[in-house]
Amino acid sequence: MKHHRHLVRAGAALIGAALLFFVVRALVMPKSFGRFGHFRGDNIAEQAAIPAVHGAPEACAECHMEVAETKVAGKHASVPCQDCHGPLALHITEAGKEQMPMHRSFTLCARCHQQLAARPAAFPQIDLMEHLDVVGAGHDALTTNEAICFDCHRPHSPSPALAPGTKTKSR
């Protein structure tokens, strides 16, 4: 009698598992995979069909030329409009002009300007709490006034800062 019966059965189980893998692979692999490269071919059409919601700064400048000129002349020249404002498609819709959503919170300013050793030394950055002490606003201001940065800084051209409390809403 042979001594390797169990080994043959184990080998058969392994081959069975490998076959099962290829059957499952054939069932779950998208049909368009590999049509253009190592990815799902249909994905290109799906991505192309997603409506564009953002616009280039030039599109904003078509109506807001004055703001665009202020921005280009200032320190925020390279910051795209839609970093702080909502996507263009929410503002200009087929139904007409809608209110543009805006992010005025100090948390947004802090994303770039919170002090961080990894940033270039010349880049304007602050320790937010320390900065509030220096300008005399107090730490409580963060809970009562989310848009506290705008009290002194104009978002489209933030430097130089204005006197505290000037409230620069638009420029």
Binding site: M1, H3, H4, R5, H6, L7, R9
Partner: peptide, 19 residues
Amino acid sequence: LALGVDDLRPETLALDRKV
């Protein structure tokens, strides 16, 4: 787990050891 084989003869176990 035994895969229906209960063969524990010395020759079989020797083959197992080799594998």
